[in-house]
C-alpha cells in the first residue's frame, strides 16, 4: 500500500505542476476583413487582363499576424464551376466551358513583423498572354489565405470574372 500512496502522490504532483503553470495561448484564427472601405476585389467583381489593380484587404489578428510568406493569393479558372466562393452571395456564372489557355497566378507575400492589423498594399498586374498565347477569359476563383504567427490560418474564396477589355 505504501508504494501505491507514493505513486499517487508523484502523479498528483505532476498533474498540479502541469496544470498550474500556464501562460495564455493564442487559440484564435486571424481574420480577412472584406468590409473595409475600398476593399478590392470583392465577390463578383471583374478584373481585366493587361491591367493592374490594387489588392486591398484588411488583415487582423487578436495576437500577431505572421510575417514571412504569411499570405497568399491564388487565381485559377472556374470554367467548370468546380470552386465555390466562401461568400454568401452567389454570382451569375457564365456557361460552363473547357479551358484552353487559362490564367494561373499563385504568389505569396510578407507582412511586416509584429503587427496585429495590416492593410495590404500591393499592385497586381495581369498579363494578356503567356507562352501559349492569349489567356482565356471567364469565371475565375480568387483565393486568399492568411496565417498568424501561431500558425492559425484562414481562407477566403471569391468568385470573380477576368475579361479582356474591349472584346466584350
Amino acid at each position: 500500500m505504501k508504494q501505491i500512496k507514493l505513486f499517487s502522490l508523484i502523479f498528483l504532483a505532476m498533474v498540479i505542476f502541469t496544470t498550474c503553470n500556464k501562460e495564455e495561448i493564442d487559440k484564435q484564427k486571424p481574420e480577412i476583413d472584406l468590409s473595409m472601405q475600398g476593399t478590392f476585389p470583392l465577390n463578383c467583381d471583374t478584373l481585366y487582363f493587361g491591367e493592374s489593380f490594387d489588392f486591398k484587404v484588411l488583415f487582423k489578428d487578436n495576437a500577431e499576424l505572421g510575417s514571412t510568406k504569411s499570405y497568399s493569393i491564388d487565381i485559377h479558372h472556374n470554367f467548370d464551376h468546380h470552386s465555390h466562393s466562401t461568400e454568401v452571395e452567389n454570382c451569375k456564372s457564365e456557361e460552363k466551358k473547357d479551358p484552353i489557355n487559362p490564367f494561373t497566378f499563385i504568389e505569396d507575400y510578407d507582412i511586416p513583423e509584429g503587427l496585429d492589423m495590416y492593410e495590404t498594399n500591393i499592385k497586381i498586374t495581369l498579363p494578356t498572354t503567356n507562352n501559349s498565347g492569349i489567356l482565356d477569359e471567364g469565371d475565375y476563383h480568387f483565393y486568399i489565405s492568411l496565417t498568424d504567427k501561431e500558425g492559425w490560418s484562414v481562407q477566403k474564396g471569391l468568385s470573380i470574372k477576368i475579361l479582356h477589355r474591349g472584346i466584350n
Binding site: 502541469t18 514571412t68 504569411s70 497568399s72 499563385i106 505569396d108 498568424d148
Partner: peptide, 26 residues
C-alpha cells in the same frame, strides 16, 4: 503548422513542417 505559404503546388497553401520536440503526457 508554420505561418508560411507555398506557391508551387496547390493553391497557395499553408506550409506544415516536420520537426521534433519534447512532449510530456499523463
Amino acid at each position: 503548422p508554420s505561418s508560411e505559404h507555398d506557391r508551387l503546388y496547390g493553391n497557395g497553401n499553408q506550409v506544415f513542417y516536420y520537426n521534433q520536440c519534447e512532449v510530456f503526457r499523463f
